[in-house]
Nucleic acid binder design. Structure first.
Lengths: 218, 218
DNA sequence: ACCTGAACACCGTTCAAGT
DNA sequence: ACCTGAACACCGTTCAAGT
């Protein structure tokens, strides 16, 4: 019906309400959500906000820097969702599983955004330190949860960093396969998540006999 | 020293020795290896081979189709390396671990190629059926190995497809984190691989008491 | 059948100029 | 300080024409 070949423009004469950087980020995110990363064009972003296509260069070095900032925001959101799942579910076994579910859910709900986050921007020539920090922050949420589980004697006492990397690999892999469309069957994601956490939990359970509750006397 | 701003050209007058498609694929792969996916330009490929930049359209619908073919080749190679590791190491526990190592090694040795393979081409509007088939072929190699391990009573008897998806998620996740440069420490990849397979193996071990060797009498 | 050169549309980026 | 429009370089793709 409506010919929305050309997006709605708001031809302001200038952009003077403070945070153009914020507006640019929001618009980039909106485009990524609907059209994917390939839909992100500087002209398009500018037109939607009502700003010249080169206004962006006042706030970002180039397009890659904009996408790096988008990634950074993604990791911040991801970390928040992980920690809130961990806290809401009681900081124990169930909460650990809930964190994993929250992780994969984030990826499935924001596939293009997630793809940008792991698209190799960090491995590029000019790695963004802020992006690296935020990525490590999300990782940290996982490490912290594992340390708590260890303190309560629920899982093995291995190096938490190593354990976290192991768990992260698993959830990251499931997330990627899911958004790549490689989990065809109905309910495949939920089934995989349940199976994976059962197997994972068995694999990292505290060794029998090496219980954390101190052996009484000797 | 040498000014190699402009790549060497082989200005043949025509390309008449049969397989231009093969040459295009090889050249694309060579560029991906050295300069990454963003370095793949139709003009560049044509110039290197000594052919017009539009000659490609006789063999591929467009650039995406070329990259899909590159992905397809990647999955074929990956499957070969997986099955050869499985066979070479004796088709048992050690061989299973060797498969995982071979998987991650492939990704680390060919990071850009691996990224193309999982870059979302399959989840695109026009999924390539040949690519899908080859991807499932590599997956199949993993399923087959698991079925053999089950037959020998070495691992749990869960649905092999589900188990394979679980294992694939893990190795895929490790591969991605490795090539994303998120495993900073010296020897981090090897350490992670060893730890991961120990934990994985524990998690999917055949349940004690549900041994595969038939209980003698009763 | 296969390949070519010219032309087109599109996009990131630069820059001198405006306020 | 922040923003703009014109211009430039680059790239995928189309197409009429060659052999």
């Amino acid at each position: 019906m409506a010919s929305h070949k050309r997006p709605a423009r708001k031809p302001r004469q200038a952009y003077h309400h403070g945070n153009l950087r914020r507006a640019l980020l929001d618009e980039a995110l909106a485009i990524i959500r609907v059209e994917g990363v390939s839909g992100v064009k500087l002209r398009e972003i500018g037109a939607r906000i009502g700003v010249s296509r080169t206004a962006l260069y006042r706030h970002f070095a180039d397009k890659d820097a904009l996408l790096a900032a988008v990634s950074t925001e993604g990791f911040r959101t991801l970390r928040q969702e992980l920690t809130s799942a961990w806290r809401a579910e009681g900081r124990a076994d169930d909460a650990f599983r809930a964190m994993g579910v929250a992780y994969v859910r984030f990826a499935v709900a924001n596939p293009s955004h997630y793809r940008v986050m792991f698209g190799g921007a960090l491995a590029s020539e000019t790695p963004d330190p802020e992006l690296a920090a935020e990525g490590e922050g999300a990782f940290r949420a996982l490490v912290d949860a594992l340390v708590e589980l260890q303190r309560d004697g629920m899982i093995r006492g291995d190096d938490p960093m190593l354990m976290a990397t192991y768990v992260w690999s698993l959830v990251h892999g499931m997330a990627m396969l899911a958004i790549d469309g490689r989990l065809h069957q109905q309910g495949a994601v939920e089934g995989l998540l349940q199976y994976a956490f059962d197997r994972l939990r068995t694999g990292i359970a505290a060794s029998p006999g090496v219980d954390s509750t101190p052996a009484r006397s000797t």
